[in-house]
Amino acid sequence: MSERVKKIVMLVPSAAWLALFFVMPLVIIFIYSLASRGPFGGVEFIFNPDNYVRVIDPMYAGILWRSVYISVISTAICLLIGYPLALYISRQSNAYRNFLLALLIIPFWTNFLVRTYAWMFILRTEGLLNNTLLYIGVISEPLQILFTDTAVIIGLVYTYLPFMVLPVYVSLEKLDHNLLMAARDLGATPLQSFRKVILPLTRPGVISGSILVFVPCIGAYITPDILGGSRSMMIGNLIQNQFLSARDWPFGSALSFVLMAIVLLLLLILARQDRKEEEA
């Protein structure tokens, strides 16, 4: 076989597969996003860029805004919880470190739906949390946590925490320990050396982690669907709604592209930062 034939045999099947079942569908929804909704929920190919304008319509902007808000809060909590954890892990001996990291990652491979359900089980009115709190007398009425934004945030933090810890851990690991010694030698208190040395030097890890958490949060569907109520809708749920209930495919397509644009933009920033890191 010639090199040319080998190249074709190796690469064309998957290239064709992805072109047909990945690129084509995206092209189709892009075309739909610029078309009009028909009177009975179909798609009419009349050019209609208004679908994109509708994204910022007050009716939908609220959902868009909440998606961003919930994602930002979740990312911030992940950072607050994840940074000290990464710091702790990075200070352990080699073998123990790997153990702790594995312990962090293993649940990530288990079923997403099941993990989300676990929180439903814990947070609902007759759930474990309320029962326990009632039993020990902290509260007299069950708390309504399930079907609120709080539940969604808990679910998102629970799911995406490893995405924050790992990059922060990597940047902490790369840190030259002599720098901390030097800072201490120059009279910095532990807090000062953390703020003036460790934190600035691990900024790339914090940025990476934040983007890696924010991106899946903004595109979340299952978490708000299960843990959130009808008032905790996020973009993902709105998209689903346009396709399966409202049957406004052009608008749903436009929403999909807006979501994709946000995600790709953030990941592009991340890629650029990584490249800069490598060059340095």
Binding site: F22, P25, I29, Y221, F243
Partner: peptide, 18 residues
């Protein structure tokens, strides 16, 4: 790399439409 990074919901609806 795209199928790994784009939101699942987008991939789901685009396939449905396709």
């Amino acid at each position: 790399y795209l199928p790994i990074i784009i939101p699942e919901i987008v991939m789901g609806v685009s396939l449905l439409v396709f």
